[in-house]
Design a protein around this nucleic acid. Structure first.
Length: 178
DNA sequence: GCCAACGTTGGC
DNA sequence: GCCAACGTTGGC
């Protein structure tokens, strides 16, 4: 795919769609696997966001998530599911090397070191919410009705969030803009 | 544990 | 390139 590669390189060197504005995202994690407390306890409160094996999500990790972008940290498959805090992008998309490791549970033979299929970013915790915002509570908020997370059949583990939605979520969490 | 929604795979 | 079968996600 030489053409896609070219487009990709252009994107890496500038932000044609967005200028220098901060982007907003939501990522899902199953707390049984990796929770916001795990991120809090991690060295530098920072982790590799790897293991994503979906092309739409990959494209966002690889091409669109930029340094300083804010990321809502969502607990999926939890009781109840909900948004647990905010992180930021501290390293932009780079190859997910777990895909190269035969022994790794996310091994994928079609991803090669010289042409990686899968990418990851590094995320650092900004704030854990004093109280998690549960999915049912989020559904009660009219300003969030358009949020990707709340749409039917929304399964993407990385989703874009609008700046308005992000602001609304922080207000609900009673977290100051930072 | 059920199942709807969605993505991927592979036969043709 | 179609589409049925299958696998996964994730709320409930």
């Amino acid at each position: 795919m030489p053409q896609k590669q070219t487009a990709h390189k252009k994107l890496q060197n500038s932000r044609p769609e967005r200028g220098d504005r901060v982007g907003y995202w939501l990522v899902k994690s199953e707390p049984d696997c990796f929770s916001i407390d795990d991120l809090l306890a991690a060295k530098g409160r920072t982790t590799y966001w790897d293991g994503v094996r979906n092309y739409q999500a990959r494209n966002m990790l690889r091409d669109q998530m930029k340094l300083g972008d804010r990321v809502l940290f969502y607990h999926s498959n939890a009781k109840p599911p909900g948004i647990a805090g905010v992180a930021e992008v501290v390293r932009e998309g780079y190859p997910d090397t777990t895909a190269f490791d035969v022994k790794h549970e996310h091994y994928d033979p079609k991803s090669k070191p010289d042409s990686p299929t899968w990418y990851r970013v590094d995320l650092k915790l900004v704030a854990k919410f004093p109280r998690e915002l549960s999915l049912p509570a989020l559904r009660q908020v009219p300003a969030l009705a358009g949020m990707a997370l709340l749409q039917r059949g929304s399964r993407l583990s990385v989703q874009p969030v609008s700046s308005q939605e992000f602001k609304t979520v922080l207000a609900l969490a009673e977290i100051d803009e930072s």
